[in-house]
Design a protein around this nucleic acid. Structure first.
Length: 227
DNA sequence: CCAGACGTTGTT
DNA sequence: GTCTGG
DNA sequence: CCAGACGTTGTT
DNA sequence: GTCTGG
């Protein structure tokens, strides 16, 4: 699965990767420990028909939710069932998005402790998670909350040694196909595959990434072997 | 008909 | 909002 | 995902 | 153990 990630991508790279205006990507800062309930940049189709980059909250809240308090639960959507699940199916049809990143964390349980491992494309190349976004308006106070979730699939061999699920990573042509409103459901399903293990790398990092308040390059620094 | 769920993960 | 269970 | 709270009263 | 907040 994917419950934390990082995005150290320059505005130029972001605009190139996502096809969004530079005046929007220029506002985005590098992050090393993005956690559920926090705001993060997401590329989506604007009303004009072109793409826009907007800050949305991680943790999808379905439009029919009574309240937004359980949002932090829906940080991931299983790609195998996303087209049918009531919480996701409308967004899957009409509100797919791209979540820029250049790495993510998985935790290995060792007794009582949880040891984080950083995963990235070889060389740290940027990519996008396949995402969905949703709009929720409180009937009471007129709030307009916009949220997103990250799709997951079966883990590849590299991630599988830690967890059986991993986020869906999109690169190159897959980004446009994911975002194309005309893509068939069959075509979309074909994109929701594990990214090849041969094109990824991983290493252990410090448990300082466990605390959401730590958000700096040290979060992804290689952890020297400790006794 | 109304009431209640609607999700993922991990662990047992 | 929509579906399932009672 | 992990960390931290999980309760009430009264006082500052 | 379970829920909420970040």
């Amino acid at each position: 699965m994917c419950g934390r990630y990082g995005s150290e991508i320059s505005p130029e790279q972001l605009s190139l990767l996502l096809d969004v205006p530079e005046e929007q990507s220029a506002q985005v800062i590098a992050r090393y420990n993005i956690a559920p309930t926090q705001e993060a940049p997401v590329a989506r189709l604007a009303a004009s028909g072109s793409r826009e980059l907007r800050m949305l909250r991680w943790g999808l809240v379905p439009s029919w939710s009574r309240d937004a308090t359980r949002a932090a639960r829906l940080i991931n959507a299983r790609s195998e069932t996303v087209a049918e699940k009531p919480s996701y199916r409308d967004a899957y049809r009409a509100r797919r998005c791209l979540v820029p990143a250049d790495g993510f964390y998985e935790w290995r349980r060792s007794g009582r402790s949880r040891l984080p491992i950083h995963f990235q494309r070889k060389g740290g190349l940027p990519f996008a998670f396949a995402g969905l976004w949703e709009r929720w308006g409180s009937p009471v106070d007129g709030a307009d909350l916009q949220t997103f979730t990250v799709l997951t699939t079966t883990a590849n061999e590299l991630v599988g040694e830690v967890h059986d699920r991993m986020p869906v990573i999109l690169t190159e042509g897959a980004l446009d196909r994911w975002m194309d409103p005309r893509s068939s459901e069959r075509a979309l399903a074909g994109l929701l595959r594990p990214y090849p293990a041969s094109q990824m790398e991983r290493w252990e990092v410090s448990i300082r990434v466990n605390a959401v308040g730590n958000d700096d390059p040290l979060c992804r620094a290689r952890q020297p072997l400790l006794l």
